[in-house]
C-alpha cells in the first residue's frame, strides 16, 4: 500500500538522518528512486520550493513528496513519518536529560559543547550568506557577482535593529517588502 510505504520510507529518513533537513535530501532522493515515486527533475523542483517556503525543510520536503505521490493523505502520512522518530526519541531521552542537567558532570559537558554550538550557528550564517549573496555564474565566461539588493537590505535591517530591537518576524516582513520593492525600481 502506497500510504504505508510512504510512512515507512519517511520514518526511516527521520530516523537515520543526522544534521537536519539538508542532510535528509540524499536519503529522500534514494527512497524516491527506489520506489520510482517521482522523476528527478520534479524532485529537484520540490527541494527548491521546500527551501523557500517557511518551516523545517524536512517537513516541507516530506509533505511535498507525499502530496505529489499520493495526494493529501500521502502528504499526511509522510509528514507524520518524518517527525515521529524525533518525537519518540525525545520522549525517551528528555526525562533523563532534564533530570540530570544540573549534575556537575553534565554541566561541565555542556559548558564545552556550547562554544561548538555557537560555532555551528556562526558558520551557518556564513554559509547562508555565501550562497545567497555571492551568485555563481551560469557559464564559465561570466564572473560570479554579488547580490547587491540583499546586501543593501541587510544594511537597512541592521540600522533598524540597532535603533530598535524589533521582533524577528517584523524584521523578516520588512525585509521581504523591501525585496519586493526592488522589483519596482
Amino acid at each position: 500500500m502506497i500510504y504505508l510505504e510512504l510512512f515507512i520510507s519517511f520514518f526511516k529518513i527521520g530516523l537515520f538522518s543526522y544534521g537536519g533537513g539538508y542532510a535528509m535530501i540524499p536519503l529522500i532522493s534514494s527512497e524516491i528512486v527506489k520506489h520510482q515515486w517521482l522523476a528527478e527533475a520534479e524532485f529537484i523542483k520540490i527541494i527548491g520550493i521546500a527551501q523557500m517556503t517557511p518551516g523545517p525543510i524536512a517537513v516541507n520536503a516530506a509533505t511535498f513528496v507525499g502530496y505529489s505521490t499520493a495526494g493529501l493523505l500521502g502528504a499526511l502520512v509522510s509528514t507524520l513519518g518524518v517527525a515521529m522518530p524525533s518525537v519518540l526519541i525525545i520522549m525517551l531521552i528528555s526525562k533523563l536529560f532534564f533530570e540530570h542537567n544540573q549534575h556537575p558532570l553534565v554541566k561541565s559537558i555542556f559548558k564545552y559543547i556550547r562554544p561548538i554550538i555557537a560555532g555551528l550557528v556562526f558558520a551557518s550564517a556564513i554559509m547562508i550568506a555565501r550562497t545567497t549573496i555571492i551568485v555563481k555564474a551560469n557559464s564559465l565566461d561570466e564572473m560570479p557577482y554579488f547580490q547587491v539588493e540583499t546586501i543593501l537590505i541587510m544594511l537597512v535591517i541592521l540600522v533598524i535593529y540597532l535603533k530598535k530591537k524589533l521582533h524577528p518576524i517584523i524584521l523578516i516582513t520588512i525585509a521581504g517588502l523591501l525585496g519586493y520593492m526592488t522589483m519596482l525600481i
Binding site: I128, Q147, E149, T150, M154, I172, L178
Partner: peptide, 10 residues
C-alpha cells in the same frame, strides 16, 4: 527573497 535572505543572515 532577496530581502528575506538578508534579514535571515543578520
Amino acid at each position: 527573497f532577496l530581502g528575506i535572505n538578508g534579514a535571515v543572515i543578520l
